[in-house]
């Protein structure tokens, strides 16, 4: 099946600000009228980092939020590409390609739970904004990180009306002391109509395990935004393979960039995902 790239376009944006949020989290704000008008929750843009040939490939980032003609991206400076982005100054041009990918199926009723690990917060402000536009007000955000300074600030998930955000840190410096999946266990008691998850693949595997072990019926909409090393972002290099269960139970590969990044969690072969090596950050 060929991906629908109908909205994707190259667009050179103008950097407005790179805001340091503390704990290494950065928020990049760029004037990108086309992307702002067309991005749906869970879709992403491929950002060119620098103008040279190293790093060569663009980097994929969830569109975190849109406002008028601007878009926000949330990231950490962990490698060559993201360090270049972190060094952008107001007025600098930014070469982008987007929106790309298959985003979240946004429900229009019931209560929803969003669960984030680390940078998994990235697609959620736009998702919350779309949920509210559709009339969903019962939104619980479960936000986990290693330590307090690395938690995406609760008030940034939605403005001006901040949703309910429950926090968890591995070191106990804020909120629940322990993995964010501990909070999910309690939240499932309310029988949410949708659970949306985003974070490192091992965290997503833990979310699925928690859901299954809870004994509660899985919500009708249960989706995760996954990650994979990506070449092009638009379905031609076939580099970003992720394992899903085929009809006969065997593992088949689907592309993170066009079949995902958001996939139904029921379809993903989590055993294979969890066996994949960690990110190769350079």
């Amino acid at each position: 099946m060929t991906a629908d790239l109908g909205r994707a376009a190259l667009e050179t944006g103008e950097v407005l600000v790179v805001e340091r949020l503390g704990g290494g989290l950065l928020e990049l704000v760029v004037r990108l009228p086309h992307l702002a008008a067309t991005a749906m929750p869970g879709t992403f843009a491929q950002l060119r980092c620098g103008r040279g040939t190293t790093p060569l490939l663009r980097r994929p980032f969830s569109v975190a939020w849109t406002q008028d003609d601007t878009c926000g991206f949330i990231f950490e400076a962990v490698g060559t590409g993201t360090r270049l982005l972190a060094g952008l100054q107001p007025g600098d041009p930014l070469d982008t390609l987007g929106p790309l990918g298959h985003g979240f199926s946004v429900v229009d009723a019931g209560s929803v739970v969003l669960i984030s690990g680390g940078l998994g917060c990235a697609p959620f402000p736009l998702l919350i904004s779309e949920l509210r536009r559709r009339g969903v007000e019962d939104i619980l955000v479960l936000n986990g990180a290693r330590t307090a300074a690395r938690l995406y600030p609760a008030e940034r998930f939605a403005r001006p009306a901040v949703p309910v955000v429950a926090e968890a840190t591995d070191d106990g410096t804020r909120g629940h002391h322990g993995p964010v999946t501990d909070l999910l266990r309690e939240a499932l008691g309310a029988s949410p109509s949708a659970v949306y998850a985003c974070g490192p693949n091992p965290m997503l595997g833990a979310v699925m395990r928690t859901m299954l072990e809870s004994g509660a019926a899985l919500p009708p909409t249960l989706e995760a935004s996954l990650e994979a090393p990506m070449g092009c972002g638009f379905g031609t290099c076939l580099g970003c393979a992720l394992p899903v269960r085929g009809e006969d139970g065997s593992t088949v590969w689907r592309l993170c960039c066009t079949d995902g990044p958001v996939m139904p969690m029921r379809d993903v072969d989590w055993e294979v995902v969890l066996a994949l090596p960690g990110a190769d950050v350079a």
């Binding site: 040939t53 190293t54 790093p55 060569l56 490939l57 994979a228 090393p229 990506m230 070449g231 290099c237 076939l238 580099g239 970003c240 393979a241 992720l242 088949v252 590969w253 994949l276 090596p277 190769d280 350079a282």
Partner: peptide, 23 residues
């Protein structure tokens, strides 16, 4: 052909390695 297991691509200085496996 289903292609090779991931990771299938890796970035290098001025280039990239691929091991798609003729999917």
């Amino acid at each position: 052909r289903e292609g090779n297991p991931p990771p299938r691509v890796a970035e290098t200085a001025g280039g990239m390695l691929n091991s798609i496996g003729l999917q």
